[in-house]
Amino acid sequence: MNAPVPAPGKPRHWRPTPLVGGAAAVHAGALAALAVSPATWPWAAGGVIASHLALTAAGLWPRSTLLGHNWTTLPASASARIAITIDDGPDPEVTPRVLDLLDAHRARATFFCIGERARRHPRIVEAIVARGHAVENHSQRHRHNFSLLGPGGLRREIEAAQSTLGEIAGTRPLFFRAPAGLRNPFLEPVLCGLGLHLASWTRRGFDTRTGHAALVARRLLHGLAARDILLVHDGHAARDANGAPVVLAALDTVLRAAAGRELETVTLRGAIAPMLR
């Protein structure tokens, strides 16, 4: 369950989690021990290494809240609704077809867009908004070493995407999703300063790796319940044996199943609308 936090959109005070605070205490304790007795260095080094391993493990777990607040499900007020989140676009071939599919199901989705791709395809971003969906921040360049960046690098990457997407979409993003979901302890303070909330997912289809739409759909539908956040991709989409992006058939199956279970779709910002009043 997500702990109560201020609504996104405005800078907030950063408070370290117990894991982050504990790691800082270990570092301080190691330095103090070395100052008093240099011979304790093996124990000091061991403690520091162990704390780094714990922080790294938390950063490699996309749904973890050990490094800071993380939306893994919708708030309780979302009731019988789910969120479809779509990453890595916009893509000039796939995104328009995804939009048509969403229209056919009268569904709403949240597109986590890459700033550089949005700059190359601004009309697609405008169409996403015009057709009732939300555009959120997925970094400016989707760098593979994103989780290795320091505070300055993270801020520049995220701020650039905020500026790009805000300019094109007409509304600045409220949510951020890290590339591949990987992050480090410096990310949460940066997000707090920018008024962004981290959002991951309840389950994902691995549709950038799997070329079988039925398997992708089964992963997304297994245990599907109200307030779930589902992850698929319009960018970097895997293709089936006929060359079609698997996201199309998989998403069609998921939306039909959700309707059969009387689950409506909502954007992330739509789900938290009561918090923004």
Rank of each mutant, 00 (worst) to 15 (best):
Q140G: 10
H52K: 14
A226Y: 04
R218S: 12
C192D: 01
R172A: 15
L251N: 05
L251I: 07
L102W: 07
A127D: 08
S139P: 02
E159G: 05
A199Q: 02
Q140L: 13
R15Q: 15
A33C: 11
T164M: 02
R106Y: 10
H27S: 11
E264I: 04
I114S: 03
I272E: 06
A39G: 11
G68Q: 04
A32C: 03
C192S: 05
A104Q: 15
H52Q: 15
C113H: 07
I49Y: 12
R97P: 11
F111K: 00
R277S: 14
L248V: 10
E116C: 14
V94H: 01
G193W: 08
K10H: 15
R81L: 06
R204Y: 07
E167F: 09
D240E: 05
A50W: 12
T202W: 01
W43C: 09
R261V: 12
V125W: 01
V125R: 06
R141M: 12
G153K: 02
F175D: 10
R261H: 15
V254E: 14
E262Y: 11
A214T: 12
N2L: 14
H138F: 03
P16G: 00
A107E: 15
H138Y: 01
T85V: 08
P274F: 02
S64R: 03
T110K: 04
R269A: 11
V5Y: 14
R177T: 07
R143V: 12
G21W: 02
R81A: 13
C113W: 02
V216I: 00
V247P: 03
L221E: 09
F206S: 13
R203V: 05
G181T: 03
A271T: 04
H233S: 06
R63Q: 11
G153V: 00
L74K: 01
G132Y: 04
F206G: 10
R131L: 04
L74H: 04
R15E: 15
P75G: 12
G29R: 11
H142S: 06
A225C: 08
P8V: 00
P185V: 02
P173D: 13
H197P: 00
G205Y: 07
R239D: 07
A217P: 11
A28L: 14
A25C: 05
V94M: 05
L221R: 08
A76P: 06
H212N: 14
Q140D: 14
N242T: 13
D91W: 05
F146Q: 06
E93V: 12
A180N: 12
I49M: 14
A273E: 13
G22P: 00
S64T: 06
I124E: 03
R204E: 12
N137S: 01
L67G: 01
P179C: 03
H69V: 10
D87R: 02
A80D: 15
F111Y: 09
A127R: 15
A80T: 14
H52R: 15
V232N: 06
P6D: 01
E167I: 08
G22E: 04
L149H: 05
W201F: 04
N184M: 02
R177M: 00
H27F: 11
I49H: 12
I114Q: 01
L148M: 13
V98R: 09
P274R: 03
G22V: 03
T95L: 01
A24K: 03
L198M: 11
W71P: 02
